[in-house]
């Protein structure tokens, strides 16, 4: 009974929003020289909170899960020097520090390389900017196959002791592209491939952090990064988690870990729901690592499809208010 009332109430709210939006549409600002009929109406400005469609079953989850405390990030000279050595930086490479990070630039080689260590997370990124960021070309770089890319990345990380046992291969995908469009042609070059690895904590995947390697022309590694945070292996304690149904309701009310900057989707199809552990954006501080629901979604525009993720905290704030 309560559920029906809720559904009817929700439908009335949506209908109300549509009526308001139709009214607002007629008040759109119009640029001189363009008639109202030339402008598309504002359609689904309900954005992320709007048209979710559940197309999967909910996962079976335990009532409680452990919470872990992070180890204060290490950006001491010792660690910076260890990373410098791992990536072959010259002893004379220039280092600088800001509120957010420690940066080392090595201009002794051509092209130069760069290392960033993030102070709030301990995450790091090594790259060769000239080859890692997309550049212009008229020749398709010689990229390895996906299998070769995986082997190159794995070997690279193992040689540097940067691939812990609880981090597993996830996927190979494109890392950067360059395109040139003319009236008669459109050429798109793949410049790098990205190999991603994901960490699991007691069999539960970490969301929003991982290890990745980018591979460019002739199999050269042009970037290696880890956004994983260190944490104490012993849980602080166990916390009760929301049910997947409760998390779904939070999703509908837009109570998200990160808000997307858009919307306009006619429909967002939820294809998978999993429980994971949330690691914050590497520039943010984080004291505890807690469970989160990850909603894998497929959406799009016309025939184009797009994969998007939505993350909802699996822990009610009242459960962890004693954790400061």
């Amino acid at each position: 009974m309560k559920k029906n009332v809720l559904i009817i109430g929700f439908a009335v709210i949506i209908l109300g929003i549509i009526v308001v939006m139709v009214g607002l549409t007629s008040q759109q600002q119009v640029t001189e020289g363009i008639s109202v009929s030339d402008l598309p109406s504002i359609p689904e400005t309900t954005g992320a909170s709007g048209p979710y469609v559940l197309a999967t079953t909910y996962p079976v989850v335990n009532d409680t899960y452990p919470v872990y405390k992070t180890i204060p990030p290490d950006f001491t000279d010792e660690r910076v020097n260890r990373l410098r050595n791992l990536f072959g930086f010259s002893p004379n490479a220039q280092a600088g520090t800001s509120n957010e990070d420690v940066q080392v630039a090595d201009g002794s080689k051509n092209p130069g390389s760069h290392l960033t260590i993030y102070k709030n997370s301990g995450a790091f990124m090594y790259n060769i900017p000239e080859k890692y960021f997309p550049y212009s070309t008229d020749v398709q770089p010689d990229l390895p196959s996906d299998e070769e890319a995986r082997a190159i990345a794995t070997k690279y990380l193992l040689e540097r002791d940067l691939l812990p046992d609880d981090v597993q291969f996830k996927e190979v995908s494109i890392g950067s592209k360059y395109g040139h469009k003319t009236q008669d042609s459109y050429v798109l070059y793949n410049l790098t491939k990205r190999v991603r690895f994901v960490k699991e904590i007691q069999g539960i995947p970490v969301c929003n952090a991982g290890i990745a390697v980018s591979i460019g022309d002739k199999g050269e590694v042009v970037m290696a990064t880890s956004s994983l945070r260190e944490f104490y292996p012993e849980p602080v304690r166990f916390v009760k988690v929301l049910t997947p149904e409760q998390a779904y309701q939070r999703l509908l009310s837009n109570d998200l870990m990160i808000m997307p900057l858009g919307g306009g989707y006619d429909e967002i199809l939820i294809t998978n729901v999993t429980l994971g552990y949330w690691m914050e954006i590497q520039t943010y501080p984080q004291k505890y690592i807690m469970p989160v629901y990850a909603f894998s979604c497929v959406t799009g525009r016309g025939d184009e499809t797009e994969q998007v993720m939505r993350y909802v905290s699996a822990v009610d704030p009242s459960e962890v208010q004693d954790l400061s």
Binding site: F133, P134, Y135, S136, S173, I174, G175, S176, K177, Y178, G179, H180, K181, T182, Q183, R194, R196, G210, A212, T225, S227
Partner: peptide, 13 residues
């Protein structure tokens, strides 16, 4: 030019 442009894509991590 009405018909040309160049583009650069970067996939975040």
């Amino acid at each position: 030019d009405a018909n040309t442009y160049d583009e650069w894509w970067h996939y975040c991590d």
